[in-house]
Amino acid sequence: MNWLDTLVQGLLLGGLYALFAAGLSLVFGVMRLVNLAHGDLIVLAAYLILMITTALGINPFLAALFALPVMFALGWVLQTYLLNRVLGEDILPPLLVTFGLSVVIQNVLLQGFTADSRKLAAGAIESQSLPLGPVTVGVMPLMTLVTAVLVIVVLNQVFYRTALGRAFRATSDDMVTVQLMGIQPQRVFAIATGIALVVATIAALFLGTRSNFDPSIGPARLLYAFEAVIIGGLGSLWGTLAGGLIIGVAQALGAAINPEWQILAGHIAFVAVLLVRPRGLFPRAND
């Protein structure tokens, strides 16, 4: 086994997991909401891109551009008409509602698209690779990782450099006082979930171009994403990226030893990190 190659492939895979996790991390950071339907929403976005690709006969990258505003609107509507109604002290209602949503999305997709696995055809770029020092990396996996880093950078900029980000942080701090600033928490939450689904759409693009997907794969993606978020520390976007990379590397190492151990190795890394650091690697100071 080539250790360096395994490590690099793991980091590249981790980029995908960081993309799965970034939206989840944002939503948790802003409103302490754990969205159990996040994985299924990513899969939904992948089907949306697929539909646009086939309907307009265009490249999935272009199709994703059309999917982004649709998914933003979906997030906005979902938050405004469903999730805002169940957010509160009691964690049970939001958990059960997003769990219900997860089952509904999965089975609606199953009804609409059957259980057959699909793929987004990105063309020649899929098989292209670059020599990078002693290892060779695929162009698509590299793009995934670069995109993940960019997404985290942009989200951080939004979070810490814009009026919207101020509203995100202030609302997360104190939902009542922020209303005295003329800010409606419900609207802030709706925008946050909209952005989370935009990121989910980007994740879906790379998920769908890299591998097959079918309506049932959402919950597994959700688990990887959650592991990344929790390992990184709740509410820290850079932590989420680190968490994604750790899960990716652990899975790649596990797979290198025995292909059946890939997922198991990721889970075990998660458990190991939490046993040592229950609050994750980069916990936010005032939580």
């Binding site: 169940v86 209602p93 509602v97 219900g100 949503l101 089952v103």
Partner: peptide
């Protein structure tokens, strides 16, 4: 799997 969709929707409605 329609019953699963119905089940999910009922569950959501109950929580709301």
């Amino acid at each position: 799997s329609v019953y699963l969709i119905v089940l999910g929707l009922i569950g959501i409605a109950i929580m709301l």
